[in-house]
Simulated scan of single mutants.
Amino acid sequence: MNKALLSFSILLLLTITASCSGVSADKSSEQSSEAAAAEIGSPQITFFTVETEQIADRVSLNGRLRAENRVELFPEVPGKVVEGTKPFREGVSFQEREMLVQLDDSEARLQIQSSRSKFKTLVSALMPDIKLDYPETLPRYEKWFNSLNAENNLVAIPEFGEGVRRYLESKGVYELYYTIKSAEDRLEKFTIRAPFSGVLSAAKAEPGQVVGPQFHLGTFVDSSLMILNASIDPAQVEWIRPGMTMAVSNQGQTESYKAEIVRVNPSVDSSSQQVLIYLEVSGEKLREGMYLEGEIESETKRELARIPKSALLRTGGVLAKRDGNLVDVTVEIHDLERSHLWVSGLQNGDEIVMDVSEPVSGRIINYSHL
C-alpha cells in the first residue's frame, strides 16, 4: 500500500511539473509575438484616403502688365523745350490732342510768315495779267487773294481752269505754294500732342533743354487698357484660344481681376521655347509692370486625385497600401498647389502614406486602428 501511494505521488508531481512548463512556454511565445508585432507596427503610419474627381486641365499663367496703347516720344525736329500748359512729369494725365511737349518754334514761324508775305506779293503782281487775259476768272482770283494772310496757313489754290493753272505754274506760284505748305507741316512738329487720352509713365525732358530727333523725351501710355504678356508650354497651347476668360490676381492675392485672351502667338519663342499669349485685363488699380498670376481651365476633364505634397516620394511616386505592404506607385503630376498636388495613377479609395519621411517601401504595416 505504501508503494502504491508513493507511485501515485510521483506521478502527480510529474504531471504538475509538465503543466507548469507548458504554461510558461505559451506565455513566452505570446510575449515574443506581441513584441514582434509592436516592433513591426511602430511607429504608427498615418494614411490618406484618396478621393478622385473629374478635373479640367489647368494651365498656370503669370506675367507683367503692359499698356496696349503705348508711345515712345521722340521729337521729329530739333529745338529747345519750353514750358507747357501742364508740367511734363511722370503721372501727369493728358487728354487726346492735348499738348505734351512744346519746342521753341519762333524762328521757324517767322520764316514761314516771311514766305507767306512773299507769296501774297507774287499773287498780287499777277492780278493785272489775270484781269487782261482771263477776265472771267478775276472775281474768284481776287477773293482768293484777299483770303491770304501771313499769320495763317495758306488757303488752297482754287481751280481756275487749265489756262490759268499753266500761267500760275510758269510764274512759280505752285512751287512757292508747296514749299510754304511743307514748312507749315514742319512747324506743326514743334508741338507734340497726345495721340490718345493717357498718362506719362516716363519723362526725361526739362524746360530749356535742347533736344533732337534721337532724344527720348518720355513714354506715354493709356492706363485704361492693359495687356498681360504670359507664356505657356507648346504642348498646352492646343486648347488655348482667343475669347477664353479667367481670373488673375496680384502676388499677395489681395486683388482679383478679369482677364480675356485676345491673341495667341503662332510661333515659339526661340530663347524660352514657350508660346506667348496676350490677355486683356480690366479693373481698377492696374499699373504697368504689375505682376499677375492665375489659372485657366480647359473644357475637357480627367480623373485626378488631390494628395498632400508630403506623400510624394523623390522618385515621383507614392506609398500605397497593397496586401499588407507599402508599395511604390508611380503617379503623374498635373497641377501644383501650395501644399497639395493633383495627380493621376491612383484609384478612388486608395490609401497612401501621408508623410513619406519615415516609411520604407515593402515594410509590413500594422492594421490596428485607434
Rank of each mutant, 00 (worst) to 15 (best):
E188C: 11
D328G: 11
R58E: 09
L187S: 05
G91R: 00
G316V: 00
K118W: 14
E159A: 00
V211N: 03
E53V: 11
S361V: 06
S60P: 03
L228R: 07
E68S: 14
L292A: 08
R166D: 10
E284L: 10
S249L: 10
V275C: 04
L217A: 05
Q95I: 07
S267R: 15
S24C: 03
A183Q: 12
E90W: 02
P359M: 04
D129A: 04
S28E: 15
N62V: 03
K285P: 09
L138H: 09
Q113P: 06
C20T: 14
R116E: 00
L187C: 07
V262R: 07
I296N: 01
E76V: 08
D105G: 11
Q274G: 04
Q102C: 09
T137Y: 12
L370D: 03
D233I: 06
E337P: 05
T15G: 10
N229I: 11
L217G: 06
L103S: 05
Q253H: 13
D133A: 12
T85P: 05
A36H: 13
F94K: 02
P234V: 01
V123I: 11
L286R: 01
D133P: 07
E107F: 03
E159G: 00
S249Q: 15
D335F: 08
A36L: 14
A125L: 13
F119M: 06
L341V: 02
R338S: 08
A56N: 13
V248H: 07
N152A: 14
M290V: 01
A4W: 14
V155R: 10
Q209V: 03
V50G: 04
S9H: 06
M290I: 10
S256L: 14
L312Q: 00
L341N: 01
S271L: 14
G22V: 12
M244Q: 10
V329T: 11
G316M: 04
L122V: 05
L313N: 00
T330D: 12
L168M: 04
I261H: 05
S33W: 09
I296R: 05
S357L: 10
A156D: 10
K80G: 14
Y174W: 10
A36V: 09
L312D: 01
V199R: 03
R109A: 15
Q214T: 11
Q274N: 12
G289H: 15
D57I: 07
K143M: 08
L319D: 11
V268F: 04
S231V: 01
D222W: 01
P266E: 08
K258L: 07
G91Y: 11
T17I: 13
Y278D: 06
M244T: 02
F196G: 02
F119Y: 05
V164K: 00
I333R: 01
D26A: 11
N325W: 09
A305V: 06
I352H: 00
